[in-house]
Amino acid sequence: MARKLALRDALREAMIEEMRRDDTVFLMGEEVAEYDGAYKVSKGMLDEFGPRRIIDTPIAELGFAGIGVGAAMNGLRPIVEFMTWNFAVLAFDQIVNNAAKTLSQSAGQFKCPIVFRGPSGSAGQLAQQHSQTFESWMANVPGLKVISCVDPADAKGLLKSAIRDDDPVCMMESELLYGFEGEVPEGEYLVPIGQAAVRREGMDITLVSFNKMMIPTLEAADQLAKEGISAEVIDLRTIRPLDYKTIVDSVKKTNRLVVIDESWPLAGVSAEVAYGVQKYAFDYLDAPVTRVNSADTSLPYAPTLVDAYLPNADKIVKAAKEVMYIRY
């Protein structure tokens, strides 16, 4: 049995189920309690769990992220919500220097089972400071796990896994897609961290993407299908650890790859996927791997510049045809 749920509702179900199951799990962040969450992900949770477990913080990201780390080291399982990952930049010291390092620097004596979650990526005309993606930043850090996913069923299962995980997990959601609906199974289930999903099977080319860029990627696959090109579409879902196997298996079949990634190109997720494929499937490639990223610039406010900046279905189709040596 499945029903349609919006991403925000699926995330909420995950948190509620885990909080009912385990009293050490609590939610903390700006506006999560009385305001019901800046994007209503935690709507109603204060009513069920009370202010002991659903905790409004001041605007003090470094402070409350660090409080989360301390609580996790001392036996609790905090979920720390950032209004956006753009604001989490203030807390990176705690995430990178403490959450990620606790296990190593204590030689295994202390663990840090904490989830940092919130939206990442552009969300309309929000300009430079509110439009960044952070998957590649966090994925670069050993000690952390990074989930980036907008499919409601997967997001629910992955968040539940993240809450139960004994290592620190960063979860990247999407402001624009909190209302995005999908089929979500009834009842208890988990989605394992570290496994990509094949969203659409195909023979001619592999398209790899994640988070909000899955939407234009699937749109591009539709357009390509109309022109007789069969694209296999992979949703990474987890960025660290990266599921090289699913990607490589697909490329061994299609021999061509385009990576679609809202991050900037240099040192980003797309670069890592391309590296993995040339390393593990070099002899299977019929064309250089290519990628569609956001522009190598900051994202300004004007609509014309947003369009020029972001990947879209047309840009993906164009890249796919380049890889297939088809004139566009």
Partner: peptide, 16 residues
Amino acid sequence: FGKATGIVKGKGGSMH
């Protein structure tokens, strides 16, 4: 309005 004649050429919008 995000226009080129804006105080930061339409690049900043309301907050910048």
